[in-house]
């Protein structure tokens, strides 16, 4: 690197080496060399000037109209969200998000809560029950975003997390430790889920999107407690997500994991398949040939 040739020399030195074998003609290479040598020393500078002016002008041109367009787009999104809300959510949550006997107030729940509940299909509810079930989302991503921005516009709350926390590039070890301490008592150490009271349950966490995991921690849906940024910092939330994504990506080193349900599935397995198989073998061994 220290002895790198100057930019003007590079083409002259390298091009013959690259082209000669391909073209098979030393004359053609010489012609090219001369063509490069004929370029004015200031040509590069002029080119950069033209480029800068063009880019700057274009930016000035577009940015002025862009603000206006975003504003209209945002307003359109809000209007769209309002319509969707009135049509799909207001029956229970009220036209002014004030809540009713059927559903809680949504003022101040934030965009994150809407994105989680609607994005994971839990809302709108399919049926009243112990808890809202995860199901395929009823809305497109744009509609979810519209609903989220509409609800967020009615009161400040946790926002949809920025992508830096969702990449799964944190410290998996730290995340695993936090997960065992804060999450495993309901979700199971391997994130296999677990039972709560009265038919409620902590769902399994395998293959849940990083965004939804983060939002669930930030907003505490249903029986889940809220882990705010003072409790578990965004970086630590990212660490937990990293650990869960690590589990998703890493198959159990010991073979099939039997649902990661611990000794119960192991016990069932050894009785049904282990001992069952061996009993079948004993029957085979003692069978008389007919």
């Amino acid at each position: 690197m220290a002895t790198a040739p100057s930019p003007s020399e590079t083409p002259k030195q390298r091009m013959p080496k690259q082209r000669v074998p391909r073209q098979g003609s030393p004359k053609a290479a010489l012609r090219k060399q001369r063509a490069a040598g004929r370029r004015h020393p200031l040509a590069t500078v002029a080119l950069i000037m033209v480029g800068l002016v063009a880019t700057g002008g274009a930016y000035a041109l577009f940015s002025s109209s862009a603000t206006a367009e975003t504003q209209t787009a945002a307003q359109a999104q809000l209007d769209e969200g309002g319509k969707l809300f009135a049509a799909n959510c207001a029956t229970c949550h009220g036209m002014a998000l004030q809540g009713s006997t059927q559903g809680p107030s949504l003022i101040g729940v934030g965009a994150a809560a809407v994105d989680f509940q609607v994005g994971s299909g839990r809302m709108p509810l399919a049926a009243t029950g112990a808890q809202a079930e995860k199901k395929p989302s009823q809305f497109t991503d744009e509609q979810v975003a519209a609903l989220a921005s509409y609800v967020a516009s009615k009161g400040p709350g946790p926002a949809i997390p920025s992508s830096e926390y969702l990449a799964g590039t944190g410290d998996a070890g730290k995340g695993a430790e936090l997960f065992r301490i804060n999450c495993a008592m309901c979700h199971n150490v391997a994130g296999a889920g677990g039972a709560l009271t009265e038919g409620k349950y902590a769902p399994p966490l395998a293959d849940i999107s990083a965004k939804h995991i983060y939002e669930a921690m930030a907003t505490g849906p249903q029986s889940m407690p809220v882990f705010n940024d003072k409790n578990i910092s965004p970086e630590d939330k990212a660490n937990i997500i990293t650990y869960l994504k690590y589990l998703d990506k890493t198959p159990s080193p010991g073979g099939f994991d039997l649902g990661n349900l611990g000794p119960v599935s192991e016990g069932l397995f050894i009785w049904i398949f282990g001992l069952g198989g061996i009993v079948a073998i004993t029957i085979w061994l003692t069978a008389r040939s007919n």
Partner: peptide
């Protein structure tokens, strides 16, 4: 952890 059980 949830689902903490002894061996069968």
């Amino acid at each position: 952890s949830a689902g903490t059980q002894p061996d069968w």
